[in-house]
Nucleic acid binder design. Structure first.
Lengths: 232, 232
DNA sequence: CGTTCAATTGATCAGCGTCAAACTAGGTGG
DNA sequence: CCACCTAGTTTGACGCTGATCAATTGAACG
């Protein structure tokens, strides 16, 4: 790892509570790397050699069985993945691929386990991050199992609108095919879901979205903090 | 907590690595309780006051939204639930109910967080347990999203058979309606799945199951360690 | 201009839930 | 001993959700 990379990662949630001497130890063992989109970073079944931290970009976690494939979660900076596999010294249960140009830190799993026992701040950060991952997965699963595709889209738009200043109009910042995957549906189905939201005052013009009747959309979406609030 | 309860719980995976003096501290704060079947232990949205440990019995974790309900996981002894919520001081994301007569230990979340910082053995056990919960949820989600109802039943039967000595015939140890819920389907659908397995040499007589052509069943089920192996 | 790939649209189908009805088995009380 | 009740189970009919396949449109780019 180069000197110049260090400031970028010192402040990551997982590492900022760590004692300086331990952080130095870690940086000597860690890698930082840039990846183009659509690169498969890890494959399920492989031994978990590295804990991955997303510094920039987006990574999709997915799983396969018998020629079928499903998206399990999407990790954005500053998230991490495979904390659990690293801790347990067990094989990956999911594969990961970049969705866009991304920058990752790779920490050798062995060092993660060592640091966990010698650095209290890091131990605290690991357990917090692991809890966050667990709860994110629970919320994701609830979203998928309890809501229809249309309801998932409606809630996504409401969250997006809130994140972009609550203006009536805003831009989608990802391709629709990726959005479809992120929402757990096919691109065809997303097209239909978009049309199905028209009666609720939602109109699309390319990547431009306009919500003209927020109340009607809320009535359909029925957002719940126990599913939609990322901070919880 | 009574003196007589202590031996039962000293050896639980979450507690056995703990220093004696810390364990004593904990037992003075913890509760141990028996519950009849079908009792709702916690409800999603409530503050997470206690970490729960299943000493005996079975607990179902489920979630609701907008009058719909879905099973998220099933916890058997010696499992735990709501570790993540306890650590994060966040509200429960799932509700829990007993499926059968069960015996639980309740540890106040505040003590869990305190002990985590002062007892290394406990910290290690917590992070291991949390990782296990996470990975169990991932496997569960893969099972549900990648397999059809029939395939899930086939894999369940194969696992069950292995657990009961690999005999050709064995008994289901739970009601079919509970099995249906555990496998993420309706009782009606389970009935149909059972019939659909007949061509693969599986016959039911009440709770008695007979697998006459294990090879055919395996060909359908295609079990994978990354989904079906509880130890991974 | 063609080439390419995303996005849309329509037709069709598989999986599974819902509803209602029939069937079964295990108790209970006359 | 039998009629009756209840709850779990099974069966059939039906509909909804969403995937798949194929064809078309649209937009970006060399």
């Amino acid at each position: 790892m180069k000197e110049s990379d260090i400031p970028d990662i010192r402040s990551l949630p997982l590492l900022c509570g760590m004692a300086d001497e331990n952080f130095d130890l870690l940086t000597r063992a860690a890698y930082i790397q840039n990846f183009p989109p659509q690169i498969e970073l890890i494959s399920e079944g492989e031994p978990s050699d590295f804990l991955h931290i997303v510094v920039d970009g987006t990574v999709e976690l997915f799983a396969k069985w018998n020629d079928r494939e499903t998206t399990m979660a999407t990790v954005r900076s500053p998230g991490t993945f495979i904390v659990a596999a690293s801790i347990m010294q067990s094989p990956y249960l999911m594969s990961a691929r970049t969705l866009e140009k991304s920058r990752l830190v790779l920490l050798p799993s062995e060092d993660v386990r060592t640091l966990f026992t010698i650095d209290k701040g890091f131990a605290q950060a690991v357990v917090t991050e692991l809890s966050r991952c667990y709860r994110t997965l629970v919320k994701n699963t609830k979203n998928l199992k309890l809501r229809t595709a249309i309801e998932r889209l409606a809630n996504y738009l409401i969250r997006k609108q809130a994140n972009t200043g609550s203006a009536q109009s805003f831009m989608l910042d990802i391709e629709k095919r990726l959005l479809a995957s992120y929402l757990g549906m096919t691109p065809e189905n997303l097209s239909r879901a978009i049309k199905a939201l028209q009666p609720y005052g939602v109109s699309f013009d390319g990547a431009q979205v306009k919500i003209s009747d927020a109340k009607a959309l809320l009535g359909l979406a029925k957002p719940s903090p126990l599913i939609d609030n990322a901070a919880l």
